[in-house]
């Protein structure tokens, strides 16, 4: 079986039998989604790096102790772990506020694009940075639904169940999140440019 084309379920099955290459493949496949989910919640790159490691340590411990349940899908499961760790951290940070000196602009956006001019790259980084800030500044309930639906790929019904609201409330929060984002993008003149994001 080729690890590159294997499903998550197949990779996890291999990993349960001790295949570390399969685990490496599944980490590479999902690291960005997991990291983005955490980062949008905790707003700090260095804490997000730590929580990413904590998330996958839980995965390793669960699998290697024989407790991994193959019935569930891997990605929603690992994203749930990441989300819970990020929320736990966020709650603790609110109780014990710390001052974080962070510029971080040099490490934003490590995606590489071929044949881009330095100027285009710089504009893309700025738009990316501003948009992420707008998401982070959304009201908590709206941000939570946006992250769960858009980045964690949970259905609105799953979100409603987890957050203990009706599906209409979850949909309404998503609608307001999108409306607020659109308004903010207009306010701060953050344009979507098809030349930057084809």
């Amino acid at each position: 079986m080729n690890n590159l084309t294997a499903s998550d379920s197949q990779l996890m099955s291999l990993y349960r039998n001790g295949n570390e290459a399969a685990f490496e493949q599944i980490v590479k496949r999902h690291k960005s989604k997991v990291f983005t989910t955490i980062y949008l919640i905790v707003k700090d790159r260095y804490i997000a790096e730590d929580l990413l490691q904590d998330t996958f340590i839980k995965v390793v411990n669960t699998v290697k102790s024989g407790r991994y349940n193959e019935e569930g899908k891997f990605l929603p499961w690992v994203l749930r772990i990441a989300h819970n760790l990020a929320i736990d951290h966020f709650r603790k940070a609110k109780r014990y506020p710390t001052i974080v000196m962070e510029d971080g602009s040099h490490v934003f956006n490590t995606l590489s694009f071929a044949d881009e001019s330095a100027e285009t790259e710089q504009i893309r980084k700025e738009v990316h940075h501003k948009l992420r800030k707008l998401i982070q500044d959304l009201p908590d309930a709206q941000k939570e639904v946006l992250i769960m639906r858009h980045y964690m790929k949970m259905s609105f019904q799953e979100i409603a169940d987890v957050t203990q609201v009706s599906i209409n409330t979850a949909l309404g929060r998503m609608r307001y999140a999108l409306i607020n984002l659109r308004k903010s993008m207009e306010k701060y003149n953050i344009a979507y440019d098809k030349n930057l994001y084809p």
Binding site: Y39, F56, N109, H128, L131
Partner: peptide, 18 residues
């Protein structure tokens, strides 16, 4: 636009996990 907000962790973190 939302799709563009994808972050990558450092290779150091990935190496630590593996």
């Amino acid at each position: 636009s939302l799709e563009t907000v994808k972050e990558e962790p450092s290779q150091k973190s990935v190496d630590a996990i593996l």
